[in-house]
Nucleic acid binder design. Structure first.
Lengths: 210, 210
DNA sequence: TTTGATAAATTAACATTGTTAAGTATTTTT
DNA sequence: AAAAATACTTAACAATGTTAATTTATCAAA
């Protein structure tokens, strides 16, 4: 049945158009200012057509949140080739910060905004799979580092939460304009990396402790 | 002039009524669902009256953000009596997490939402004084700890950002529902404290390093 | 090719929102 | 008591998300 197939593809295409348009609007004008009508305008359909492809506005945000995770995964493609798990941990943190700062709008949807979580709650299978696997990967990595004696032993969940918390904290403070005058804009990124390296340095057993 | 004084007081009173009503609404129904009309309803004035006391909705959020900082300062009244600066650092972190988790709506306005920052940008004196002094206090404390050899020496700004980043990260992930199934709700607070203690423990010189 | 059903898109409308302008009541000053 | 300033309300606007009703396009069967 080539016909049903083609229709399926058309539907996918329009969905993609809608998501692309949404993202463009978000980047150009910020979330607050994104509206269904503007999205419709951009894809040159009537406003209500959008509702034939997405249940509501929140679902658009949810899908963008998924796209964001895809983008993030792509950025981490360079990880597996790093054999030393501790080096991999460093790189993972760096990647996280860089991703957040280079894709602030995606990051916001993925980790700050309520909308996608609201959609998840309405779903049957209502758990945040993407987030859970991400933090799971961090935990596994930490476990490996500990087993090989590369970092100090400690409760894995607590350490994972601490590290994730820190990088998320830095990025989200920056995104939501809480860094203020404390750190000048041009130093922001490098200071964040310094903070991360400092943290990992303190647990890195290859540093000599006096 | 007792008359101008009384008028001044009346104005203050109504302002307070508006802020109280706003906070009540935010707590009861969340930000998304707070409206000028609901606020007006609650104080039994017409919707437009609110505009006689606040320029716009964002300014209400800005004032609530200031109230939040006041509340936070109150919570930290117990700090000065702790003579050991390192102990004070521990307590400061604990307080921060507790404040955030016990006053999620305030915390959200203070550190997550864009609205108060937008208002600040529109102001003449457009810097985030409250935030800056808060982080300044942390930096001073760290400085003191380092000078007394209680924690390892390191660039103060980077360490301050790291610590603040971590506690903010944990609280904001929790508030915005990103902890998911990773940490069960009833363990959330204690795990966060474990993470904080782990971090401070790693830089605490009173721990023996092997 | 005409028909009739199904799918796709649009127009019209609704209730809610933040906010402004214009008008009314109330208080203060003269 | 009249005039002026203050406090408040009513009416209205444009914009928003969303639904219901209606039109238009698509395409297999007659």
């Amino acid at each position: 049945m080539g016909i049903a197939e083609r229709k399926e593809k058309q539907k996918k295409d329009i969905k993609k158009m809608i998501l692309d348009a949404s993202m463009k609007l978000i980047i150009d004008e910020g979330f607050e200012n994104i509206t269904m009508r503007k999205i419709a305008d951009l894809i040159e359909y009537s406003p209500t057509t959008v509702y034939l492809y997405f249940k509501d506005k929140d679902e658009i945000f949810f899908q963008l949140h998924e796209l964001g995770f895809q983008k993030m995964l792509e950025m981490n493609r360079n990880l597996p080739e790093i054999k030393n798990p501790l080096m991999r941990l460093y790189k993972m943190g760096e990647n996280y910060i860089n991703f957040g700062m280079q894709n602030q709008e995606f990051y916001d949807i993925m980790f700050i905004q309520q909308a996608p979580m609201d959609t998840i709650e309405k779903m049957d299978d209502c758990d945040w799979a993407l987030g859970d696997t991400a933090i799971g990967a961090l935990q596994n990595l930490l476990q490996e580092c500990m087993e090989k004696g590369l970092i100090q032993k400690a409760p894995v969940e607590a350490v994972a939460m601490a590290i994730w918390g820190m990088v998320h904290g830095l990025v989200s403070l920056a995104i939501r304009n809480r860094m203020g005058k404390m750190v000048p804009k041009e130093n922001l990124l490098s200071t964040m990396h310094t903070s991360l390296n400092w943290l990992l340095g303190t647990i890195d057993n290859s540093f000599v402790k006096e």
